[in-house]
Computed example of a mutant assay.
Amino acid sequence: MLTLAALLAAPALLLSGCGSSSGDAAEQASAKAAGAASPAAPAAYPAVQVTAAPPAQALTLPGELESFYQTDITPRVSAYVRRVNVDIGDHVRAGQVLAELDAPELTAALSEALSKQKAAEATAQGSRGSYRRLRQTSHTAGAVSPLAVDQARTLAASDSLAVVAARAHYRAAAQMAAYLRLTAPFAGTITERTAAPGALVSQGGAPLFKLKQLNPLRLRVAVPEAYVGEIQNGNPVQFTVRAFPGRTFTGKLTRTAGSVQAATRSEQVELDIPNPKEELKPGMFASASLPVQARANSLFVPKTAVVNTAERTYLIRVANGRTELVDVQLGDENAGQVQVFGKLRAGDVVLKSGSEELAAGQPVQVAMR
């Protein structure tokens, strides 16, 4: 049997347990609220140090092969195609007739001009003969009046000038008729043909042929501004193309543009490429290795650290816990690293992944990688 004292103590114990549970829950809720109210620590940006290393002595740059000369063969007169003498892939020599056109009105104009020239020459010959006879007769006193001699001399001079005009007119008509024969301006290969016998072509219309010179070729390469001072004409340059894996071709640097393009900050250079077997084709992409002089150590950063915008190219340097935007120029690339030129020193801390969202003077925390 429970005693009276035990019965009286039970309610007190129950009330005590409930009070303790309620107190613990309140304390836990208060702790959670306090934790939510406390600010979270800012995230740290991955950062790296600017490294110094010797630059490459050979600069590998992409380029494109182009024909040394190329032109579109376009008709200069409106006519019908009478005969096509060449096709795609044919090798032609300078002056070779590629196609013949037919325009009866030009042929008729040439015949008319020739007739007028012959008539003018005959008239001038008769006038000169009359003048010579009158001049000889004038030596006999009273045989011919001086006025008649002067008139004969004037007529002979006028008819001579008419011959000059007729000959010029004939040469013009002959030149127009010569346009009916389309010829090659230089030796090369026909790479495109649209002409067909019977087709009507017009002056300044679509080209009938595309002619390209395949030996030698040109290789055009854009050299970054940082290396412009080290490029010299006459240097041999080796390059490769995908069409011939494992083979290396050689050309000579012959021409430089003499101007740096503002859009790409590079100078266009050209190499002459001997192509006696015509293995290389215009339009092929090439990877050229341009020799450059060895210089002092250069600064390198990961390519991801560079921020490129329409206005500038820069890195985000962190000094004293704040960001600084440092303008740079880019150089050679190698294994994910890019050469940079600017107000930097080896050991400077820059963000590994640059972003336009970070402004100058912004406080940041970094984690070195």
Rank of each mutant, 00 (worst) to 15 (best):
A222I: 09
T240H: 08
S298Q: 12
V241D: 04
A288F: 06
V241A: 04
P291V: 07
G246E: 10
L208A: 10
V237G: 12
F249E: 01
G251N: 04
G229S: 15
P276E: 12
A305L: 07
A195Q: 08
V260N: 02
K212Y: 13
P245A: 01
T240A: 14
N235Y: 14
A286C: 06
K210N: 14
P207A: 06
A199P: 05
K303S: 14
V241K: 05
A296P: 04
V221T: 04
A199S: 15
E230H: 05
K303V: 02
P291F: 02
A243L: 04
T256I: 08
N275F: 06
L208M: 10
N235L: 15
G258V: 06
T256A: 11
A257L: 03
Q268K: 14
A263F: 03
G258L: 09
A263H: 05
S266Q: 04
E225S: 10
F244T: 05
P216V: 05
R242P: 11
A257S: 14
G258P: 01
L290D: 02
R218K: 14
K210M: 07
E230S: 07
A199G: 15
P197H: 09
T264C: 08
S266I: 04
N275R: 08
A305Y: 10
Q261Y: 09
V307N: 13
I231M: 11
Q261R: 08
G204H: 14
F239R: 03
L253M: 14
A263L: 14
N297H: 00
R255S: 04
P302F: 00
F300C: 06
V301F: 00
L271H: 01
E225C: 11
I273E: 08
E267H: 07
P274Y: 03
F244L: 06
V292C: 01
G246P: 12
E278F: 08
E279R: 06
A257K: 05
A286Q: 05
L211P: 05
V301K: 02
V306F: 09
T240W: 11
G229H: 12
Y227C: 11
V260F: 01
P291K: 12
Q293R: 15
G198N: 01
T250L: 09
A222C: 08
V237N: 13
A243T: 09
P207S: 10
P274E: 11
S289H: 07
T254S: 12
R295I: 12
P302Q: 00
L253H: 04
F285T: 15
F300K: 09
V301Q: 06
A257N: 07
K210S: 14
T250R: 07
G204S: 13
S298Y: 01
A243G: 03
V201D: 12
A294V: 11
V223E: 00
S298V: 03
S259R: 15
F244C: 01
Q238N: 14
V241S: 04
S289W: 04
L211N: 08
Q238V: 02
R247A: 12
G246D: 08
G258I: 03
R218I: 03
L200W: 15
A206L: 11
F300T: 01
I273K: 07
T250W: 02
I231G: 03
I231K: 03
S298F: 01
V221G: 10
A222F: 12
